[in-house]
Design a protein around this nucleic acid. Structure first.
Length: 517
RNA sequence: GUCCCCUUCGUCUAGCCUGGCCCAGGACACCGCCCUUUCACGGCGGCGACACCGGUUCAAAUCCGGUAGGGGACGCCA
């Protein structure tokens, strides 16, 4: 990803470039405190920045890893940007300094990179722009659209609990709304003076028109006692100054949207379009969480899923294109459209993910799979240095593995000769038969110089016909001798991959084991 | 409690806007058969849903109203 270089220039663009008057970006620049310097006009000139150019963003808060829900939101944003030739921006919402961590930022970036969701601008960190937000807060205060509130958190909590207990809406009662004296030297927050009466509505690209009575909306805090800005305020400033045209985010934000719309209006910013994507639920239909198992994107990588499989799974969760199920990256981009995103929540289903993963494993290049398999083998302390070529091994396993973890598990026997055999499977054959089969196969194998699979298969057929054995009586014991069990690739494949020499060695060992019983 | 949103097979969904082609199509899972030296792959078939109640209409999954259920939000978190 050549993003880093891009980011540096793009960062300046955060404040807008010459000739762009869609959003008062110049004003932002003018309002900027001295410690955020803009070096003249940005040298990075993006493709024509007209109002019609789509600009979307993914704005995670770094308080944990990238989970599948966030990943899907990011994917939808990315897809729409690619589909429309727009710009995808990554913004880290770390205004909660207490809970935001560098580790989370790294984990999120790692997850996005693994999924192949590259961004055109950013990552921008809201914590870098506190002075900017403060400027806007001051503007609002100066124009009377925001005011100082001296109620303490404790008082507010008490009032909220009381309201809840009495069955009332727990909204701010407006005690300080019209307070005459507004001393600066006493601890206070800044609240937005929300319009009273009437209603606020917006047209959601997914859910349609949503209207909230202004009654329901109280005066939200835009600046904390410690002077830091709050989420709902920062998003508005950022989305406006970054000239975001379409906000695609989780369903859980619809309730925040009317307040944000009011803020856009109070600030004189154009209101972007909104698209709220439904939640992803667990099997019990409750919001997906850790107790439902893995939710981190990276944990899916570690469990042996291919990024294209996860993307394909995620894109079909809530979105569809007729009866299509398999989408290459290009097809996804070409076919993606917000209007085909469903309105209801969907349940995360690992089994379908497994099916897709198996599909992509089957159609991947064995060389790539071999490389991806290495870490899964090393955690099993399996060395591929002395043994068959891993690519050849992968070819015998591709058709039968749903995940790389499963493939690694099934690959172990190629490198570590069985130390034990599946007793139940072995017990299906007489001791005499086993010894005779092993002897006959060893004999045939050592007297023939065979190389390919069909020759090996022919050799086994010959052994069968010469001794009036059925294939099941020969193949199965040999499979157990070679792999230790019955869940394995075809005999021909194993022998060719393992090599005749190693094959004989293993059958010899199995014969000794049976003889000693 | 209040507000907002949602509701087609077990799950993901098509169809709904522009009623009839839908006694509802596809996919995953499940079951059966075929293929097969094992495990898989693959092929074929089966099971299985319009939340409920009213209304409009010659005709409703599709339009209207209500009910129920589920989810979300209500923070000096994001």
């Amino acid at each position: 990803m050549s993003k880093q270089k891009h980011c540096l220039t793009a960062r300046k663009c955060f404040f807008g470039e010459a000739g762009n008057d869609i959003v008062p970006s110049r004003k932002i620049a003018a309002a900027l405190p001295d410690n955020i310097q803009i070096n003249g006009i940005c040298s990075h000139t993006p493709r024509s920045t007209t109002m019609s150019e789509l600009r979307v963003r993914f704005a995670p808060s770094p308080t944990g890893y990238l989970h599948v829900g966030g990943a899907r939101t990011a994917l939808f944003n990315w897809l729409l940007a690619k589909n429309r030739g727009g710009t995808f921006i990554l913004r880290i919402e770390d205004t909660d300094v207490e809970r935001s961590t560098k580790e989370s930022v790294d984990a999120i970036l790692e997850g996005m990179k693994w999924l192949g969701l590259d961004w055109d601008e950013g990552p921008f960190y809201q914590s870098d722009y506190f002075p900017l937000y403060k400027e806007y807060v001051q503007k609002l205060v100066a124009s009377g659209k925001a005011y100082k509130c001296y109620c303490t958190a404790e008082e507010l909590d008490a009032r909220r609990n009381l309201a809840m207990a009495e069955g009332r809406k727990p909204k701010y009662d407006g005690s300080c709304r019209d307070r005459a004296d507004q001393p600066d030297d006493q601890p206070h927050v800044i609240r937005f003076r929300a319009p009273q009466g009437g209603a606020t509505s917006f047209d959601d690209l997914i859910k349609g028109t949503i209207t909230f009575p202004n009654e329901e909306l109280d005066d939200l805090i835009i600046q904390r006692t410690d002077g830091t800005p709050t989420y709902n305020f920062c998003v508005v400033i950022d989305d406006a100054t970054m000239r975001i045209t379409t906000v695609i985010r989780g369903d859980d934000h619809v309730n925040n949207t009317p307040r944000q719309v009011q803020l856009y209006e109070a600030l004189g910013f154009p209101v972007p379009q909104f698209a709220h994507v439904p939640m992803i639920l667990g099997a019990d239909k409750a919001r997906l969480s850790k107790r439902h198992g893995a939710t981190s994107v990276i944990s899916y990588r570690d469990m042996g899923y291919l990024p294209e499989a996860l993307c394909n799974y995620l894109v079909r969760l809530g979105w569809s294109h007729g009866d299509d199920e398999i989408f290459s990256r290009e097809e996804m981009i070409a076919k993606f459209d917000i209007s085909n995103v469903g309105r209801s929540a969907s349940v995360f289903n690992t089994e379908k993910l497994n099916w897709l993963n198996a599909h992509y494993i089957k159609s991947s290049h064995p060389e790539r799979l071999a490389a991806l398999l290495l870490p899964h083998l090393s955690i099993r302390e399996v060395s591929t240095l002395n043994g068959p070529d891993l690519v050849a091994v992968v070819k015998t396993l591709q058709e039968r593995a749903q995940t790389l973890e499963e493939m690694a598990e099934r690959a172990v026997f190629y490198y570590n000769a069985p130390v034990a055999y599946d007793d139940a499977a072995l017990a299906k054959f007489d001791k005499e038969l086993l010894l005779a089969v092993f002897t006959a196969v060893i004999e045939k194998l050592s007297s023939t110089s065979v190389a390919d699979e069909s020759e090996i298969d022919a050799l086994f057929k010959t052994v069968c016909s010469e001794n009036s054995w059925k294939m099941g009586q020969v193949g199965q014991p040999v499979r157990i001798a070679l792999s230790g069990g019955t869940h394995a690739p075809g005999i021909g494949e194993i022998v060719v991959t393992l090599g005749v020499e190693e094959t004989i060695r293993r059958i010899l060992a199995a014969r000794e084991f049976v003889a000693a019983k």
